[in-house]
Design a protein around this nucleic acid. Structure first.
Lengths: 111, 111
DNA sequence: GATGTATATAAAGAATCACTTATATAAGGA
DNA sequence: TCCTTATATAAGTGATTCTTTATATACATC
C-alpha cells in the first residue's frame, strides 16, 4: 500500500478528518482529542496511528503525553494528483459530451 | 457513510485512480478498461460501481455498452475540502468559519 | 429465433478494518 | 515505593472490502 493510498484511506474516515481539523488549531494529546468522537481511548489511539502511517501527522514525546501535530507538506502529493486529473479533465469534458452523444461504438478520442 | 467518505475511500485504491486517469482521456467502457489492471471483468465492474457511488463518475447507456465518464464537479468538491484542510494546516484559520458553512461534511462520528 | 457480445449480479472466501474490554508500559507526584 | 495519569498493545468480534467463478440480463446481428 503506497503512501498515497494510505493518505486517501486515512481521509475517508470522518473521525480522522475531525482530528486533523482539531490539530489545525494546535498540537493535541489523546486526552485533548477525547471528545472528538464517542469512541474509546484505544480506538482514538488507533486513528492517530493510521494518520501517522499516512504521514499526515507527527508525534513528539512530552513526559507521558504524546502531543500530535499536523505535517502540512503531506497534502501536497494529494493535491498534485487531483490537480493533474482535473487539468486533464477540463480539457476534455465538453468535447466528451458531444462525442458520447453520437458514439455508436468504441470510444477512445485519441486524436 | 457520507459522499465525502466514499470519495476519499474510492481514491485510496490505485486501480480506481488508474481508471479515473484513463477516463480523463475520454469516456470508456468496461472493455476499454480491461487492461488497466490484471483483474476479472466483475472486479472491474465493481470498481466502477464504487466510483459511481462516490459520485466521481457517471454512466450512460449506448446499446449494450455502458460508457463511463468523469464528473468534474466531484473533483471540484474534493479539491475544496483539501484546500480547506491545507488552509487549516498552514495556520490560516480565520476563514474557517466561512468555509465550514460551505462544506459541512466532516464531523460525523461512526458509520 | 439463435448466437455472440457487453455488462451486471450472485455466491463465497480471504483479508482488512473499526471497534470493544483488558492489560501493559511509562512517567510524575505523594 | 505506591498511586495516578497518559498512552499503547493484545485479543477478540462483527462488518466491510476485494477478489474469484458462475450465471443472468440486455442488446445486436444474422
Amino acid at each position: 500500500m503506497s503512501v498515497l493510498d494510505r493518505r486517501f484511506a486515512a481521509l475517508s474516515d470522518p473521525t480522522r478528518r475531525a482530528i486533523l481539523e482539531r490539530l489545525g488549531q494546535g498540537a493535541a494529546t489523546v486526552q485533548d482529542l477525547r471528545d472528538i468522537a464517542p469512541i474509546s481511548q484505544p480506538a482514538l489511539s488507533h486513528h492517530l496511528k493510521v494518520l501517522e502511517a499516512a504521514d499526515l501527522i507527527e508525534t513528539s514525546i512530552v513526559a507521558q503525553t504524546r502531543p500530535r501535530r499536523l505535517r502540512p507538506a503531506a497534502l501536497d502529493e494529494m493535491n498534485a494528483w487531483l490537480a493533474r486529473l482535473q487539468t486533464i479533465m477540463e480539457g476534455n469534458y465538453q468535447r466528451l459530451d458531444a462525442l458520447l452523444a453520437d458514439m455508436p461504438d468504441t470510444p477512445d478520442p485519441k486524436e
